[in-house]
Simulated assay, not measured.
Amino acid sequence: MKAVLKGLVTGLFLLPALVFAHGASRLQVEETVLINADAETVWNMVKDFDSLHKWHPAIISTEASGGNEVGATRTLTLDNNATITETLKRFDAEKMSYQYDIDSMSSVGQVDIEGEMHDIPAVPVSRYKAWVTVEAEGDQTKVTWLAKFFRGYTGNHHEPKELNDETATNAIQGIFRSGLDTLKAKIEN
């Protein structure tokens, strides 16, 4: 009985350490839009990895190499002059889908976490992967933009507001929504 009690007490002392050792959880955002156009027209607007600036209002330019080949890279310049570098990981013209990852981002500031300064990336996320998919849905076309990522600060200290889950999720939702809404407007008008 003493051994069982000792085990329970030890477990209770270790539980908080295990909870805090876990770190950040993976987050996910998925946004969609229905566009009054055929799938081929919509795919032709979004498929080129080097042309995000043509339909996303926050992107002022795209510098790219590699076209739509897996391994192609692009550096996006945002309207605040921050940059994001991404790599194309998958491209399937037949399924009208591609997947890309963020490799690096410029910093838009710093924040103090437990006495140590940390960069605030252009988009407050880390380990970001995203998919863009176009599919016919009746006489419309559905575009889905899905991302899986972690918040900007993945350490075990208390994360600052600038790098927490809510800020990361809101940023990606805003980016996706403004891009998809602009895409719809450009194609339908």
Rank of each mutant, 00 (worst) to 15 (best):
I172E: 09
S25F: 13
D181K: 03
T144P: 10
W43K: 04
T62P: 01
K54T: 14
V111R: 05
L15A: 14
S65H: 09
N80A: 04
A136G: 15
E159P: 12
K2M: 07
D92H: 06
H53Y: 09
L18T: 11
E188F: 05
T62E: 13
F91T: 08
N68G: 08
N189T: 11
Q99G: 06
A58D: 14
N189H: 14
D79A: 07
M105H: 00
F13I: 15
T32W: 02
L78Y: 07
S65E: 15
K54N: 14
F20V: 12
M45G: 00
K89L: 10
E30R: 06
D103A: 11
T32E: 08
R74Q: 13
K2F: 12
K89R: 13
E137P: 01
T75H: 03
G11M: 12
S97Q: 15
L163N: 09
F91G: 08
T169D: 07
V132M: 14
H158E: 15
T83Y: 00
D103T: 11
E188P: 05
V33K: 01
S104P: 08
T167H: 04
E86Q: 13
T154Q: 14
T32C: 03
T73L: 14
N36H: 12
D165P: 10
F13G: 10
N170K: 14
K89Y: 00
Y98G: 02
F150R: 04
I172F: 05
F176Y: 15
H56I: 02
A122M: 02
E159K: 03
A93V: 06
L88W: 07
W145M: 02
P16K: 02
T62W: 01
I59K: 03
E188S: 09
V46M: 04
E30M: 09
W43V: 07
T182D: 10
H158N: 09
G109L: 00
K95H: 07
N189I: 01
E63Y: 01
T62N: 14
L34K: 12
G152Y: 05
I102N: 04
T75D: 08
V134W: 06
D101S: 13
V19K: 10
M1K: 11
H22R: 15
I113H: 01
F150W: 06
A24M: 05
I60H: 02
N189M: 06
R127W: 05
K2P: 03
N36G: 08
E63F: 00
Y128L: 04
Q110E: 13
D181I: 01
D79V: 07
K148F: 12
S97N: 03
V42G: 11
I84R: 06
V132P: 00
M45R: 15
S25K: 15
K148T: 14
Y98D: 02
V132Q: 13
P57L: 04
E94P: 00
H158C: 01
V143W: 04
D119P: 00
G109N: 01
G138V: 08
G174T: 08
N80T: 09
V70D: 05
N189Y: 03
